[in-house]
Amino acid sequence: MSGIALSRLAQERKAWRKDHPFGFVAVPTKNPDGTMNLMNWECAIPGKKGTPWEGGLFKLRMLFKDDYPSSPPKCKFEPPLFHPNVYPSGTVCLSILEEDKDWRPAITIKQILLGIQELLNEPNIQDPAQAEAYTIYCQNRVEYEKRVRAQAKKFAPS
């Protein structure tokens, strides 16, 4: 494992614990031996107030490669969400998460999670990743928002 990646992720964890947006979660997972795995984080993004996503808490896994922060983490909703920019596998399609697009090593975990929260309610229809959600979003916004509200209710924190 890269010392650069681990040191950056340790800084990220410290900064997150000191200050993070209300309702968001970002925690490194534990290895079988109980030690912390900084390369694999369990996160959760709350649906934004005043949107059909409100009330939901959407679980996301963030996986970092050894060359982080040169390369972005892979962000994957578990379980996958109904959304035009979420692949059926759950992987998020967002330009700041793509090395050859808008990724920059200075982007923080907090910025990534806030960017994904923004994307939930403002899909990028130029870059669809899920045919069904994309089609319904474009053709029947009322039905799309109904499905999103049902999903938010399903993923409401207990």
Rank of each mutant, 00 (worst) to 15 (best):
S2A: 08
G3M: 15
I4T: 06
A5P: 08
A5R: 04
L6Y: 15
L6V: 11
L6I: 05
S7C: 10
R8M: 11
L9W: 06
L9H: 01
A10G: 08
A10P: 04
Q11Y: 13
E12G: 02
R13S: 02
K14M: 05
K14S: 05
A15F: 12
A15V: 10
W16E: 03
W16R: 01
W16P: 01
W16I: 03
R17V: 00
R17P: 04
K18D: 04
K18F: 06
D19Y: 03
H20W: 01
H20C: 05
H20M: 00
P21H: 05
P21E: 02
F24K: 01
P28I: 02
P28E: 03
P28M: 05
P28G: 15
T29G: 12
K30C: 04
P32R: 15
P32G: 11
D33L: 04
D33F: 01
D33K: 02
G34Q: 13
G34T: 04
G34V: 05
M36S: 05
M36F: 06
M36R: 10
N37C: 15
N37V: 13
N37Q: 14
N37R: 13
N37S: 14
N40Y: 09
W41T: 01
C43G: 11
C43K: 02
C43Q: 03
I45S: 06
G47E: 02
K49P: 05
G50Y: 14
P52G: 14
P52A: 14
P52S: 13
W53V: 06
W53L: 00
E54Y: 07
E54W: 07
G55N: 09
G55H: 13
K59P: 09
L60W: 04
R61K: 13
M62K: 05
L63I: 12
L63Y: 09
K65E: 15
K65G: 11
D67P: 10
Y68S: 04
Y68H: 08
P69D: 03
P69S: 03
P69H: 03
P69A: 05
S70L: 14
S70E: 09
S70N: 14
S71K: 12
P72L: 01
P73Y: 03
K74T: 15
K74A: 15
K76V: 13
K76Q: 14
F77C: 03
E78Y: 07
P80H: 12
L81H: 00
L81I: 13
L81W: 02
F82Q: 02
P84F: 02
P84A: 12
P84T: 10
N85K: 03
V86W: 03
Y87W: 06
Y87G: 04
P88K: 11
P88T: 14
G90L: 02
G90W: 01
G90H: 01
T91P: 14
V92M: 01
C93G: 03
C93Q: 06
L94Y: 04
D100I: 15
D100W: 05
K101W: 08
K101V: 13
K101M: 08
D102H: 14
W103V: 00
W103N: 01
W103M: 05
R104I: 01
P105T: 07
P105C: 12
P105A: 14
A106G: 11
A106M: 00
A106P: 06
I107P: 03
T108Q: 15
T108N: 14
T108E: 13
T108D: 10
I109Y: 03
K110D: 07
K110R: 12
Q111P: 15
I112G: 06
I112N: 13
L113Q: 06
L114V: 15
L114I: 11
E118F: 15
L119V: 07
L119W: 10
L120D: 00
N121Q: 13
N121F: 02
E122T: 14
P123Q: 00
N124I: 04
N124K: 01
I125S: 09
I125M: 09
I125P: 07
Q126H: 10
Q126A: 11
Q126W: 11
Q126C: 13
P128G: 13
P128C: 08
P128H: 02
A129H: 04
A131R: 05
E132C: 09
E132F: 06
A133M: 02
Y134T: 05
Y134L: 05
Y134F: 08
T135W: 12
T135Y: 08
T135M: 10
T135N: 08
T135F: 11
I136R: 06
I136D: 10
R141Q: 13
R141G: 08
R141T: 12
E143A: 12
E143G: 09
Y144W: 06
Y144M: 00
Y144P: 04
K146D: 14
K146T: 13
R147C: 11
R147A: 10
V148T: 04
V148R: 02
V148L: 06
V148Y: 03
V148S: 03
R149Y: 08
A150W: 09
A150Y: 13
Q151R: 00
Q151N: 07
Q151K: 05
Q151W: 02
K153W: 06
K154P: 01
K154A: 12
F155D: 08
F155A: 07
S158G: 06
S158P: 13
